[in-house]
């Protein structure tokens, strides 16, 4: 690539490389879209519950920040021998359905095998305190369809939201939708 800086490179070669560069950009966008699509198509859908947060912090322009019930985990769920994980370490959180949503039951450093009713979600230790681990799942942002952010913000601040997550067999996870829990659970509007 560095030889491109000299003036001896023939024009045809330059054009060829240019085409490759642009083709790579197209492939990159298609790959991002395909990964997103495949995660939904082949993934297993679970539901997570959010915890209400300070409404002033919830809405940032075109996305809302979500804080899950599984974002803060008690340290006693850690099932590995040796010291507790440090900041930035990857962890595998085993989830089990409890009522409407999934909740954490155990935390491992390596991906464990689990029974069919349980799922494994990958996360990273964002912070740790004496009794708690703060886990980041890279699912904390939801890009809202235009105009619905305010509504989500208002409801989400008072009541937990239910967030549908699709987990692909290869571990990638993404949000597929956010539901507002209606008081009578009738006619819950979907966003």
């Amino acid at each position: 690539m560095f030889s491109l800086l000299s003036d001896q490179v023939p024009l045809a070669r330059r054009r060829q490389l240019l085409l490759l560069t642009i083709l790579a950009q197209v492939l990159f966008i298609v790959a991002v879209a395909a990964a997103g699509y495949a995660t939904t198509a082949y993934g297993r859908v679970i539901t997570l519950r959010t915890t209400p947060i300070d409404p002033r912090d919830l809405l940032y322009g075109d996305y809302v920040t979500l804080n899950y019930s599984i974002s803060q985990l008690p340290t006693n769920l850690w099932r590995e021998p040796g010291p507790r994980p440090r900041r930035g370490d990857p962890v595998y959180v085993v989830l089990r359905p409890v009522g409407q949503a999934y909740e954490a039951v155990r935390v491992y450093a390596k991906k464990p095998n689990v029974p069919a009713d349980q799922v494994v979600l990958r996360g990273w230790v964002a912070d740790r305190w004496r009794r708690n681990l703060h886990i980041r799942y890279n699912l904390e942002r939801y890009y809202v369809p235009e105009g619905t952010g305010q509504e989500l913000e208002r409801r989400g601040a008072r009541k937990p939201l239910l967030v549908n997550i699709s987990i692909a067999p290869w571990g990638q996870a993404r949000i597929t939708g956010v539901e507002i829990v209606a008081p009578d659970s009738l006619g819950a509007p979907r966003l």
């Binding site: 690539m1 560095f2 491109l4 800086l5 330059r14 490389l17 240019l18 560069t21 790579a24 950009q25 990159f28 991002v32 879209a33 990964a35 997103g36 699509y37 995660t39 939904t40 075109d62 996305y63 980041r136 890279n138 699912l139 904390e140 942002r141 939801y142 890009y143 993404r174 949000i175 597929t176």
Partner: peptide
């Protein structure tokens, strides 16, 4: 954003800088 993928993933943005560098050379 369409697939709720961005937010914590830096790879995409670095790809942008890579494309810029390649085009600068070309």
């Amino acid at each position: 954003q369409m697939y709720q993928l961005i937010g914590y993933d830096v790879t995409g943005l670095v790809a942008w800088a890579v494309a810029g560098t390649l085009l600068t050379y070309l």
